[in-house]
Design a protein around this nucleic acid. Structure first.
Lengths: 123, 123
DNA sequence: ATTCAGATTTAGAATGATTCTAAAAAGGAG
DNA sequence: CTCCTTTTTAGAATCATTCTAAATCTGAAT
């Protein structure tokens, strides 16, 4: 556990936003100006592989990193990219595994919309 | 409707596979050797915008293009990328719209697994 | 505390997918 | 056939991400 990895984990855990690697890099540079993008990716990948955080891949934008590791889904604004956790949505994993006789390793559910802020800005 | 656009539409409609832009380009070059990648993308984008085909964005790989335009979800092999339509999966759109008071423009549901072919190859 | 092997960081190049640009060519309404 | 618009082409550019190789750091064993 290097300083860099600890910093990146702290940054992901310290925000409710689903930050991009770029945003995490910006925040990290404020505390550690020498840190480079590759280190941010290295650590985000390592942390995701270790199950400490989750990498969320979403259509039409860069990946996001999420501190919430329990299975949940996302609501994504197609204009500003803001991402909100969706709780209480029925999980179709069991249904799919039963009907198709497969074992799922992961499930992405991304609901796309335009958030109220962006909707206003359209007059 | 140019020759190129007609060709690309025919190629997407003529296969059950969810081809990538690259694969469509390869197939298109067989019939029209001068066609360039940008034209393939231009037309795939135009056709998707016109609702003739659907662009499917999936974690960890290039976008796929789907002739089936009714709402459905996908099963994706994380090893070979093969994509299968999922029918009969309950659509959580209405539930999310009701609970969150939003209007969804799109919904992605991608279930990830390792297909039987790839599973065998792992011995 | 010192050493050493292995993991990590850095800087920058490389990659893959996709989009953009500007000029040439094609489409189609009249 | 002519003019205007749209599309194609070729290639550069962009974005997100990964890779490479050399320098540095980490942690375990001395």
């Amino acid at each position: 556990m290097t300083k860099q990895r600890a910093l990146i984990l702290r940054l992901v855990r310290g925000s409710c936003a689903h930050k991009t690697a770029e945003q995490i890099w910006q925040a990290a540079k404020a505390e550690m100006p020498s840190i480079v993008m590759a280190t941010v990716y290295n650590n985000l990948n390592a942390l995701a592989e270790a199950g400490e955080i989750i990498r969320v891949r979403v259509a039409g934008g860069p990946d996001r990193f999420d501190k919430t590791v329990t299975r949940h889904f996302h609501l994504v604004c197609d204009e500003c990219g803001e991402m909100t956790d969706l709780t209480g949505v029925q999980d179709p994993t069991a249904q799919i595994e039963g009907e198709y006789g497969v074992c799922l390793s992961a499930m992405e559910i991304n609901a796309h919309y335009i958030c109220s802020k962006c909707m206003e800005g359209r007059s």
